[in-house]
Design a protein around this nucleic acid. Structure first.
Lengths: 103, 103
DNA sequence: TTGCCATATGTCATATCTGACATATCTTAG
DNA sequence: CTAAGATATGTCAGATATGACATATGGCAA
């Protein structure tokens, strides 16, 4: 599967610039993944700033630690919807979201 | 259900300012809906600019006319993921997405 | 009016995402 | 080292989103 690949690469520290379009990903696909990773990164940052553990954030969004971990590691089974809902739960503003996206 | 309500209101032209937080919606919920509606609106705009019908856009994103309609009318069963994928398929840039979000 | 094309709405089987759980792998303090 | 807290990974049943189809409504030209 496509997104699996992208995720594995991310985890191994491949991070080439910002998008991994070097293997079979269409521009839209890599833009989409890029977006997701940017939002994930922002979430981790926000959570850290607020000194919350994944477990605490999980409670806040009525989810589980493992799902929060998946959000933050860019797991392909995580939707942008969930990431955005989590960001909003941490009090992120529209402006912050916008910044995260175009980063 | 919650989001049903928000959608109905939208359709009836209720658009009070920008968020319908006046009936039982938490700040995060209305922020989320707001976001979705902004992105939907942007999609419709982009599609119009490119003189595409819903059916044509549907083919472009491997979906159906009815789902495109649902996207554009803010149907609660539509995910932000799908809206964003559609926007990307229309060639929207990160900057455009960011603008749409913080509008 | 009629016909045609675009858009909207309702429904449904299937695909995808979700929370939860178990368990593994860090990290750091003692 | 070992223990404890935090984070990561794998799995799965149930929840939600999806494309597809039928059908309705809207707009507009003949």
């Amino acid at each position: 599967m496509r997104k699996e690949k992208a995720k594995r690469l991310e985890n191994k520290g491949w991070k080439i610039g910002s998008a991994e379009d070097f293997l079979g990903l269409s521009p839209e696909e890599s833009a989409y993944i890029d977006l997701k990773l940017n939002l994930s990164a922002k979430l981790r940052k926000l959570r850290a700033e607020q000194n919350l553990t994944q477990t605490e954030l999980a409670k806040l969004i009525h989810s589980s630690q493992s799902r929060v971990a998946k959000i933050e590691t860019g797991d392909p089974t995580v939707s942008i919807d969930l990431i955005i809902k989590s960001l909003l739960a941490l009090g992120a503003s529209k402006k912050q979201l916008a910044r995260a996206i175009s980063s």
